[in-house]
């Protein structure tokens, strides 16, 4: 018990880093994903091709490797980022790529008739997207989106590789120095609480969208 009291404050510190990375990534990747999805669907060929390339790069390589490239690799071309900044950048670019693909599928699943109905009523393309298509898209992508968001919580553990003391790294350090397994159990509980809250949040969100079919 005494050990737990000693352990938990340091673990909470690690958790706060984890959460900070989590929320910063979400705050930027969620909207960036929409922009990227629209770019991917653009009829302007170069933009479209660029987006395919972008998604290929960020889905086609491990996030761990992307972290290393952005933190260490960029120093070779003279760009030195702070650890945490590098972590956020890598996560945002990576998650925006995945989210963009989810959004794209969601947008493409909307019936063509919705565009035509908006079109004959005189709505502009922008209005059609923002008032008709995207709101319906969000409802449809909630299940795959909740998957991604839960993955994000767990993926934050990867930033240990560039020396950031997030939750799992703190637990590992404590486990090794104190020669105990308890820190890992505490870490597991912390992760489960975070993902549990997210699950409930999405459940609530989905029920909120149940007012229409």
């Amino acid at each position: 018990m005494d050990y737990l009291l000693l352990l938990i404050p340091t673990m909470l510190k690690g958790t706060s880093i984890t959460l900070k990375l989590f929320f910063l990534t979400l705050a930027m990747a969620l909207p960036l994903g929409v922009i990227l999805a629209l770019a991917r669907l653009s009829k302007f060929k170069p933009l479209n091709v660029f987006m395919q390339f972008y998604v290929w790069i960020f889905r086609g390589t491990p996030l761990l490797l992307q972290l290393l490239f952005i933190y260490f690799g960029l120093t070779f071309v003279g760009i030195t980022l702070e650890r945490f900044t590098a972590a956020v950048l890598a996560f945002v670019l990576n998650y925006a790529a995945y989210l963009a693909e989810i959004y794209r599928a969601g947008i493409q699943s909307i019936d063509r008739g919705q565009y035509e109905a908006a079109d004959v009523l005189g709505l502009t393309k922008m209005q059609t997207m923002s008032k008709i298509i995207l709101p319906q898209m969000f409802k449809r992508v909630l299940p795959p989106m909740s998957n991604e968001v839960i993955n994000l919580v767990k993926d934050t553990a990867l930033v240990y590789v560039i020396g950031i003391s997030e939750l799992l790294r703190v637990a590992k350090t404590a486990a090794v120095t104190d020669f105990r397994f308890t820190p890992f159990i505490v870490a597991a509980i912390f992760y489960l609480i975070m993902t549990g809250v997210i699950q409930q949040f999405f459940k609530w969100l989905e029920s909120k969208y149940e007012f229409y079919e």
């Binding site: 109905a117 009523l121 008032k131």
Partner: peptide
């Protein structure tokens, strides 16, 4: 234009469906 399959906006109420275009 009135379509074969209506193409109402499912996420808007009946009233909002009608109000949308005049508003925008």
């Amino acid at each position: 234009m009135v379509f074969q399959n209506f193409h109402l906006f499912p996420h808007k109420s009946v009233l909002q469906n009608i109000m949308l275009a005049p508003l925008l």
